[in-house]
């Protein structure tokens, strides 16, 4: 997910000069990019010690928190954009955090692995859980505890009265707008409170 084209595609969804909160910001590469290329200002949230260190090294603001504890520290609408890039699938409270994302951000951007991508369907059809470049884990050791599809997210967003502003797939860094649920390994959504 950290390749350049993917990062640039997601960055294009973030308006210039936005105040950004990046949930599960990893090593801070995206925030760094947003700060340099799009004059954004913001903070990353991370739980992993190594990633916190990497962010401090880069000069990206990072706050070490466990997202499963929620976003109580952040006020309603206190950020222009809240990002969850490859984070949602790791969260026990994925639905709550989706709502929290829309509460704290005027817009939310979520990207996650789309389990309905055709190679995954093929694998399931053969009777095995998919193991791919995008989903490199075995079923018994995967950190992806929330297994969802592009379409599943649309349903969840509707259920929580979120308005989807943009929705597309990403495959090998290219944006997939036709049949993304079958043709893209990654689902990307931009949304706001309804």
């Amino acid at each position: 997910m950290s390749d350049r084209l993917t990062m640039e595609s997601i960055a294009r969804l973030v308006p210039q000069g936005s105040r950004v909160l990046d949930l599960g910001c990893g090593d801070g590469a995206l925030l760094d990019h947003l700060q340099r290329e799009r004059a954004c200002y913001g903070y990353g949230i991370e739980i992993a010690d190594a990633n916190v260190l990497a962010c401090v090294k880069r000069g990206v603001n990072v706050i070490q928190l466990n997202l499963d504890e929620g976003l109580a520290m952040f006020d309603d609408g206190s950020f222009d954009v809240v990002l969850q890039i490859d984070t949602l699938q790791h969260l026990r409270n994925a639905e709550t955090m989706l709502v929290e994302t829309a509460r704290v951000g005027r817009a939310g951007i979520v990207a996650f692995p789309n389990f309905a991508h055709w190679p995954n369907r093929l694998s399931i059809a053969r009777g095995r859980m998919p193991v791919t470049k995008r989903l490199p884990y075995q079923w018994y050791d995967t950190p992806n505890i929330r297994v969802g599809t592009f379409k599943d997210f649309e349903v969840l967003a509707t259920k929580n009265r979120l308005t989807i502003l943009e929705a597309y797939g990403l495959q090998e860094g290219r944006e997939v707008r036709v049949l993304p649920n079958a043709r893209a390994g990654t689902a990307v959504f931009k949304f706001e409170r309804g």
């Binding site: 010690d49 916190v52 962010c55 603001n61 706050i63 070490q64 928190l65 520290m73 006020d75 206190s78």
Partner: peptide, 21 residues
Amino acid sequence: SRELVKALLDNRRDVSYAEID
């Protein structure tokens, strides 16, 4: 420490916070 972090966030200050286990 989180109270301090929040107060700095509210003021849009640059802050990093490590919570060491």
